[in-house]
Design a binder for these strands. Structure first.
Lengths: 415, 415
DNA sequence: GAGCTTTATCTGCAAGGATGATAAAGTTCG
DNA sequence: CGAACTTTATCATCCTTGCAGATAAAGCTC
């Protein structure tokens, strides 16, 4: 059925050149605004005339506007360019096990409004009430605003093409047509993504400037469960259409605790918030509400709390060591409440990873806590925004077209 | 030091359009030769005139030639096009722990000559004697041939930029400037790659035609050690410059056997050929030379051998289950001698993976043995050939240029 | 204020693919 | 046999892209 002959190849044309360069410009301007045409020319290597042409096209399309003139550096002063933040707005939704957050972001990816509500009730009813709140917010504050898209991040297995949540053990949801529901309610295109993936995306867009060149990043999101998001070559790794569960169910110990997936010793059963709190309760006999509370206790000198966090850090380190060696990312980011205890867990995680690495000296692995407070929410913004730009998809088409294939001769020469 | 301002952006121009389309054509012709201009037009969606222009350019550059006219399908008969196999030759070298193989391949990626020699002696001396044999072969059979590149696949950690083998525990080599040595001896550009990565590449290029659309593939190479190669989006995942060790040192059991890396229960200590043979010896008290021999024994009804293979299959399945869930590749390929026992190990591996997967029904995961006998050798061919085509690199440049970045506001709104 | 630098624009050019007409070489069928 | 139709490949023309070099605008320096 999947015949080679039926595959449509996507070729490249002048329009692609224009679109790609235009998008590069847009991102460049957004990244370094304010910026002058001359600076763009220097950064891109394009001729000044070409730069003007492209910039003026962007201005004509109202994606960019010309601000005041900047200070002269010994010659004609530059005219500063800015991304027109009002040219596109998106809605970001982060559905968590306890609470869900929705937010409005402008074209610059900046959060304008952010509100939370408890996650409760039947999935569909909850989503509709969430949409209702969003519609209220829009009516009250953004009546004249045109939204381009909605980005949703959810803990669980996502069918990206359909925009449905296939299953989420932690939410207790199954087969929820998230996109269908929200598109019906809101009337904007909805893009659904796994929370850890969104979080990884957030680091890519909002992460520290020193990491501008980073192309490969692993995000470890520690919440009720434990998820991982993987950025490879500056792109979210999504694997096959359905199925990217992340490394939460990587088994680290065949004799470990039983996991909801039926196996033993999954990473999630050892290092998630639930595992951490359970472990604390097992040791002390007292229940505690959240990992944030546990961190407070540890910082106040509670030895049991401290040891519990240290144990979690060790398990995190174990799993990260496996992945660090296997994927060799440039950066590993840990997010979730536990990242608030970085002074405690950071060194332990690093130590674990270093002890496993064969060549710690030559490998430049950066391990750090997340740079935003709720990465899965911040990630939902680029999830929505990226769909305002087509070229990413076009790149994919190009790459697909170039994968070669060699027919093997009937007999293979033995050795 | 890594300032954003210093990053040179790579823009797109007319030349890129031409190069990319030309390369797409070349691959298309190679994949489906013989093919007519009209068929190319249908496959690409380009106009007949455009197709002619590009094809004639390729013919002028001697990369393609026009063969005899094909059979008419009711009108003017097509002129068949073929890739000029003689337009480029490459040398492939696969350095193994026991033996090493070198081969000559034409531009179609077809093996023309293949020879083996034992891997022994000091690394540098061995590489020079290997180069000497290759030079002899060239002198005898390919005196008039122009080679474009040399691809080398080695088990171990590679510094791709330098072309050096950083370390190979299994070979017992360390800090060997493979590229420098071979380029000095042979005079052609040398590209060095990890053996499992090369093997993954081999599946991408030589794999079954049904998998033409496959973009994500995991190769598990079981030799003395155990390595993994990962293809993501049709591209080899190489991670940071130095460091991709693969998942061989993923720990599956904190109480497992001690590994050379200092940890316990690494996948390699459980499922590699060495582990398998050690396990057989531990059970039976008798030593055996190779896994191939072990498979023969099992097929002859030796219960101990059969059980040994089954145990290895279970461990392979364990590791693969971890990775399948975390990376969600479309295809997982297992290579090495043990793949010869696919009837025995295949079902067991599948079972292990299925039992771990939360949703086996909806996930379309293809697990199969390697489609070539020595995948690391076959992989060395595309390693060399791919450098004859620039666009892959250019795509990378494009993507890098488009990665956006948002400056965070000073204060992040709490929730 | 002359000369220089920096910034932005303008005008013509080369090269890519798109388009539609045309030629070439068969098949089909009355 | 030959007119009509198909399939395949080419040609001349057009639009768009980025490129190049000249030119204009606006400030600094001495």
């Amino acid at each position: 059925m999947k015949r080679a002959d039926n595959r449509k190849l996507h070729m490249v044309g002048l329009r692609d050149v224009r679109d790609i360069n235009q998008t590069v410009f847009l991102h460049l301007i957004r990244e370094r605004q304010p910026i002058s045409r001359a600076e763009i020319a220097k950064a891109t290597g394009l001729r000044a005339g070409t730069v003007s042409a492209i910039v003026n096209r962007l201005i004509r399309e109202k994606l960019v506007y010309e601000g005041v003139a900047g200070p002269s550096s010994g010659g004609r002063p530059p005219k500063y360019l800015y991304v027109n933040a009002e040219s596109a707005y998106v809605i970001a939704i982060d559905i968590g096990v306890r609470d869900s957050v929705y937010a409005v972001s402008d074209f610059n990816g900046r959060l304008l409004t952010q509100r939370a509500m408890l996650t409760k009730g039947e999935p569909e009813a909850f989503l509709r009430s969430l949409a209702g709140e969003i519609k209220d917010l829009i009516g009250a504050q953004y009546a004249r605003t045109r939204f381009k898209a909605v980005g949703v991040s959810i803990p669980g297995l996502i069918d990206r093409d359909e925009g449905t949540l296939v299953i989420s053990p932690n939410l207790g949801w199954k087969d929820i047509p998230v996109r269908a529901i929200l598109e019906e309610e809101l009337g904007y295109p909805v893009y659904v993504e796994n929370d850890a993936n969104a979080a990884a995306f957030a680091e890519l867009w909002y992460g520290p400037l020193e990491e501008v060149g980073v192309r490969t990043l692993l995000f470890v999101l520690v919440v009720e469960g434990l998820g991982t998001g993987l950025i490879i070559n500056g792109e979210l790794h999504v694997g096959s259409r359905v199925g990217l569960g992340g490394f939460g169910h990587m088994s680290l110990d065949p004799n470990g605790p039983l996991c909801s997936c039926g196996r033993r010793g999954c990473w999630e059963t050892l290092a998630s918030n639930r595992a951490t709190l359970t472990r604390y309760r097992a040791v002390t006999g007292t229940s505690i509400g959240s990992v944030t509370d546990l961190i407070s206790l540890a910082q106040q000198g509670d030895q049991a709390a401290l040891e519990t966090l240290r144990a979690t850090a060790a398990y995190l380190g174990e799993g990260i060591a496996n992945l660090a060696h296997g994927l060799s990312p440039e950066t590993i980011v840990i997010g979730g409440e536990i990242a608030g205890a970085w002074q405690i867990i950071g060194p332990l995680i690093r130590e674990k990873v270093q002890s496993r690495y064969i060549l710690p000296s030559r490998i430049n692995l950066n391990i750090r806590p997340a740079s935003v407070q709720r990465p899965s929410l911040f990630g939902a913004i680029p999830i929505a925004l990226q769909h305002c730009f087509h070229p990413a998809q076009r790149f994919d088409a190009l790459k697909r077209a170039v994968t070669p294939r060699i027919k093997l001769p009937a007999k293979v020469a033995g050795r």
